[in-house]
């Protein structure tokens, strides 16, 4: 501890004093508190790091030999050695895509309205407070909401499922009503789940754009729309995107709401039968069908394996968790990269 300074050696005789600078019992006890506090903070940090290290080490040890190329590209199986996460990966990819499709435009739109247009009325404040509250609502509640709203559609279509078919020339869009246990139901549910987070993050990014930029733009004869479109949005985009990525990476690890809206535990197909990126171009009907098909997701498969009575599935689950962690790490890293990249360009 650098604060514990030693008395400076003094060349003069014993009668020299330190003129009221000498240590007292009170000052010593104050210093001791400081040292203890620093130690406590240090321990808190190391404790969380230690937990993470133990967790990771355990996972890696358990999944050793199980996490291989076959695990990534196999469908699930009753035999631990053949079980893979392929259906979960594709399910999660589709979920992420549609979740972003719904939550990003609506979230950014709402944020722009609240920050740039909304008058400072009681209603605005009420909405603002509720957004913050919504961001803290447990995800299972969103699952129940999704179940009644999207999966069953309040029972408005009776017991029999109807299919709304729309021909698009290159394929048919077949929309089941109610939406039932499909990719779309789950994506809509996850969109609701992360929308408050996206809105709040986007609001913060918009607020960080200095007023001088707006005024400078107005003074040049720009309209409000032009100012937002050409100055405020571009300047806040890195911040907004960072928030979106972090929100989506939260959604991708969610299990509870997916269980509620009926993700399947054991699936040996991918949505729309699309198994590699090329299929997206060559199989338009598959792309159209994908959102309306049953699905599983990475965390759902992990849950299934953890619960499995066969002991070996522990290792499969560990391998699945590592895949999920890698996906999350990649997303978070890209958020950080994005932020750093633009921060060096955009500063004021």
């Amino acid at each position: 501890m650098s604060e514990q300074s030693q008395p400076v050696p003094h060349q003069s005789d014993e009668q020299s004093t330190v003129n009221g600078l000498q240590r007292t019992n009170a000052s010593r006890s104050k210093q001791r508190i400081g040292v203890a506090f620093e130690f406590a903070c240090r321990m808190s940090t190391w404790f969380s790091v230690a937990v993470l290290v133990v967790l990771l080490a355990g996972l890696i040890w358990k999944s050793w030999g199980w996490l291989d190329a076959d695990f990534l590209t196999n469908f699930d199986s009753r035999h631990p050695g053949e079980a893979g996460i392929w259906a979960g990966i594709w399910g999660s990819v589709w979920l992420m895509f549609f979740t972003m499709l719904f939550s990003v435009p609506i979230g950014i739109g709402a944020a722009i309205y609240l920050e740039e247009y909304a008058p400072p009325t009681r209603l605005t404040r009420f909405i603002q407070i509720n957004l913050s509250n919504l961001a803290g609502v447990p995800s299972i509640v969103y699952g129940i909401l999704g179940l009644t709203t999207f999966v069953r559609m309040f029972g408005a279509f009776g017991a029999n499922q109807k299919v709304l078919a729309i021909s698009l020339g290159f394929g048919n869009l077949r929309i089941p009503l109610p939406l039932d246990r499909t990719v779309l139901s789950a994506a809509l549910t996850l969109s609701l789940l992360i929308m408050p987070v996206v809105i709040v993050a986007a609001q913060e990014a918009l607020r960080a754009v200095p007023g001088s930029i707006r005024h400078g733009s107005f003074a040049l004869g720009a309209t409000k729309w032009q100012t937002i479109r050409h100055q405020v949005l571009p300047a806040s985009l890195p911040g907004i995107l960072t928030g979106v990525i972090l929100a989506v990476s939260r959604a991708i690890g969610e299990t509870a709401p997916l269980l509620m809206v009926g993700a399947f535990m054991f699936v040996t197909s991918t949505p729309g039968g699309i198994q590699n990126p090329v299929d997206l171009l060559t199989n338009p009907q598959g792309v159209l069908d994908a959102p309306f098909e049953p699905f599983t997701a990475i965390p759902i498969q992990i849950l299934n394996w953890v619960q499995h009575h066969k002991h070996e599935f522990e290792h499969v689950a560990a391998a699945g968790i590592i895949v999920l962690l890698v996906v999350l790490l990649v997303m978070n890293a890209s958020a950080v990269l994005l932020r750093n990249r633009y921060q060096s360009k955009v500063r004021w």
């Binding site: 005024h215 400078g216 040049l220 004869g221 720009a222 004021w348």
Partner: peptide
Amino acid sequence: KRVGMVFQKSTPFPKSIFDNIAYGPRI
């Protein structure tokens, strides 16, 4: 547009020099 304004604190937009000047005519 007819009555332009220059502020106390310089407020360049976080864009290129060219785009800063061209902003007014562009909009």
